[in-house]
Amino acid sequence: MFRWFDTHEVTEFASSVAIEYARLRKSTALRRDDSAKKSQKFAKLNGRVAEFMRTRKPNFYKKARLIDSLRTGMKEQGVPEDESAVFINSVLIAPITR
């Protein structure tokens, strides 16, 4: 029963995704990458999140903690809230509603 509430793994994953997102965001801005190059780089990160969700199959409590941890982590990394909301929606919330 306690494993059901253990969010250590999703919290660590969310932190790594937030750091990677901020790193990609800064590097694409510095290099002035075109939109195709940006999409390609962020698609890899989206794939990483999709793979985590597919292999780990977190329950709804862990998904909620993942979303919250990701929002918090991205805010700490200086990503604007509207930008982080679009990313989170595209990789975590939109696949659930499909």
Results as ranks from 00 to 15, higher is better:
Ala14Ile: 00
Pro95Ser: 10
Ala64Ser: 15
Val86Met: 04
Glu76Phe: 03
Val49Pro: 09
Gly73Arg: 00
Trp4Ser: 02
Val49Leu: 10
Pro80Ile: 02
Ser35Leu: 14
Ala94Ile: 08
Thr28Asp: 05
Ser27Met: 06
Ser84Cys: 09
Thr97Cys: 01
Ala64Phe: 14
Ser16Asn: 07
Phe5Ala: 13
Phe13Met: 00
Leu30Tyr: 10
Phe13Leu: 00
Thr55Ala: 02
Gln40Val: 01
Trp4Cys: 03
Ala64Cys: 10
Glu76Cys: 02
Val10Arg: 00
Phe60Thr: 15
Met53Ser: 11
Asn89Gly: 13
Val49Met: 09
Ser15Trp: 03
Ser39Lys: 14
Thr11Pro: 06
Lys75Leu: 11
Asp6Val: 05
Ala43Thr: 10
Lys63Met: 10
Val17His: 01
Tyr61Glu: 13
Lys75Val: 04
Arg54Met: 14
Ile96His: 03
Lys44His: 11
Val79His: 04
Pro80Tyr: 03
Arg32Ala: 14
Leu30Met: 11
Ser84His: 03
Met53His: 05
Lys75Tyr: 12
Asn59Arg: 09
Arg32Met: 15
Phe2Cys: 11
Glu20His: 07
Gly78Asn: 11
Ala18Trp: 02
Phe52Val: 00
Ile67Arg: 12
Gly47Gln: 07
Arg23Glu: 14
Lys37Glu: 15
Arg48Ile: 06
Val91Gln: 03
Lys57Gln: 07
Thr72Val: 12
Ile96Gly: 00
Pro95Tyr: 01
Arg32Phe: 13
Thr97Ser: 04
Glu51Trp: 06
Glu9Pro: 02
Gly78Asp: 06
Leu24Arg: 01
Ala43Met: 07
Asn59Gln: 06
Lys62Asn: 06
Ala29Ile: 08
Asp68Glu: 15
Gln40Ile: 00
Trp4Pro: 03
Pro58Thr: 11
Lys26Trp: 03
Phe5Leu: 15
